[in-house]
């Protein structure tokens, strides 16, 4: 009888829990502090920032000059617009293609679906590689220097296809059959029955594809030649990694350029990351859900 009572925590367990909590607090600080530092630096007075060493616990002075400068930069604006186009059009096409595939591949009793599925999964383990893909897109399909070069080659992510198929397969067959008896064809069933019943996982798809498009840059780097077509991330790369802030500061003296350059970089990081930071807390549960659905099948 006594053994069913909850056992008291031993001293060791208390210590363990204390240490674990401490560790988690450290993790939170280590994860968040870089972002906080970026926020502080972006609104700091750039001269003070340049002179300062070590940790920042508050902004040094306060100025939005760096942000003004970032928004004045025509490349950032055109980058934003190009990225919005890629995210918008790209994600819609991703959803159309992925749901078509997921719906058909989730149907039972169709002779070829198993073969098609294996044929698709094989591509997760074997690919032609970077160069043949580049030649295909650039030289044979003539998509080079077009935003569609960033959309079409990645129309379907096999991983997302598997997640969506797994989810579609859980919809009761009876619902689909009754729609069929009412005279609906498969495309109608997909749009009127299956997708409305799968809105949470469709949200996951929007987020996975959307964030993927927002963050991608490599395709843009190899396929695009005109600066007007560059997405935001490629512009960011010039400013942050290749250290190209000079043209942004106009005709200030070299010393000023260097000083403002520092806070411009931080302000640029903020401008490019704020949309994600802003939607993230609301969408986080959906992301997690997507990973979970994916892991059930594998």
């Amino acid at each position: 009888m006594s053994s069913t009572q909850p056992i008291r925590k031993s001293k060791g367990e208390h210590i363990f829990h204390g240490l674990n909590t401490l560790f988690m607090l450290v993790m939170i600080v280590v994860t968040l502090y870089p972002f906080i530092y970026v926020v502080f630096s972006s609104v700091s007075d750039s001269r003070l920032l340049l002179a300062q060493t070590g940790i920042l616990l508050a902004p040094l002075g306060f100025t939005l000059d760096a942000y003004t400068m970032v928004f004045k930069n025509p490349n950032i604006l055109s980058g934003y617009l190009n990225t919005l186009f890629i995210v918008g059009i790209g994600t819609i096409l991703n959803l159309v293609m992925t749901s078509l595939g997921a719906y058909v591949l989730s149907r039972k009793g169709v002779v070829w679906t198993r073969h098609i599925m294996l044929w698709i999964i094989f591509t997760m383990f074997f690919s032609g590689g970077l160069i043949p893909m580049y030649l295909l897109v650039n030289n044979w399909l003539h998509l080079g220097n077009s935003l569609f070069a960033l959309i079409v080659p990645g129309l379907i992510s096999t991983w997302n296809l598997i997640i969506l198929r797994t989810s579609f397969a859980t919809i009761p067959e009876s619902l689909i059959e009754s729609a069929r008896i009412d005279g609906a064809q498969d495309l109608t069933i997909l749009m009127r029955v299956v997708i409305p019943l799968s809105l949470p996982v469709m949200a996951v798809m929007v987020l996975f594809y959307g964030v993927g498009h927002w963050n991608s840059w490599f395709g843009a780097m190899i396929y695009l030649r005109d600066r007007e077509l560059f997405p935001l991330q490629l512009i960011l790369r010039e400013i942050l990694i290749q250290n190209n802030t000079n043209y942004m500061a106009g005709n200030a003296s070299t010393e000023d350029v260097e000083a403002v350059g520092e806070s411009i970089k931080y302000a640029t990081i903020m401008v490019a990351t704020l949309p994600i930071l802003f939607v993230y807390p609301f969408l986080q549960k959906y992301f997690v859900k997507g990973v979970m659905i994916g892991s059930i099948k594998e």
């Binding site: 993790m27 939170i28 963050n215 400013i239 930071l277 993230y280 986080q284």
Partner: peptide
Amino acid sequence: VQTVTYLPHFISLIVVCGM
């Protein structure tokens, strides 16, 4: 803890490398 530690996954590689 989970919300905070999942966050960096969504930050673009360019921004992470920039930082």
